[in-house]
Amino acid sequence: MSIPPREAAISIRGLRKAFGGQPVYSGFDLDVRRGDILAIFGPNGCGKSTLINMAAGLLPMDGGTILYDGRDVADVRVGYVFQNYREALFPWRRAADNIRYPLRLMGLPKSEIERRVERLAASFRVRFDLHRYPYELSGGQQQLVSIMRALAVEPEVLFLDEPFSALDYETTLSLRDLLQAVLKEIGVTTLLVSHDLEESIVLADRLLMLTRRPTTVADDVPVALPWPRGTAALSSPGFVAIKARCLDVFQAAVAA
């Protein structure tokens, strides 16, 4: 899929990364269109986290470039949602103060900070008490606070590393619905790592399937299903067809 340069929010060229001499990426290219939600699906240990951590500037690369509209990640406002919300939130701060934290770092005035927190709470239809400490909240509520914290800075790019994998199915479904509504409303470019195929398809504009190491793209699947994609969308013919295609690719390339 070739994307005109002016539409590309992220372009990765010749990315290389090895751990202890074992290559994970050796010359990896990727362009992500502005406002797209890109799901990255692949087997455990194939390097999904490694990829978004390098993109987010949390992990040094061995070679290649990752540019955001020509800029380095240091000059880009990013949001990041970790898989393990328990270890990502600050338990010594109340939930609302966790959300306010990056805004205070940015030096925003108090009124603007409160405005953003209130708006996020409204967008995500938060009904629990944000004045509580994270450990007083359920897992789903904690991950929701994590997501709100990542979105509070109004990021240009949002990274989510298996955000639902520690949650039960019911919680996952409701969080997924909330998240897709908000992401589509604000139109933020998003990289979502997942090892759940259904989740990847439901949330993505485009699905990237990765192989085992050394990691390459097994398939690059556009997901042109209409939004919003509720539970009913899971049994729509379009969804089933994409899922079947992905499973075929998975059988052929990933599991081989």
Binding site: L58, Y80, F82, F90, P102, V153
Partner: peptide, 10 residues
């Protein structure tokens, strides 16, 4: 993870 979270928030 907490250190990384703080770092990514700037």
């Amino acid at each position: 993870t907490r250190v990384l979270a703080a770092r990514i928030m700037g």
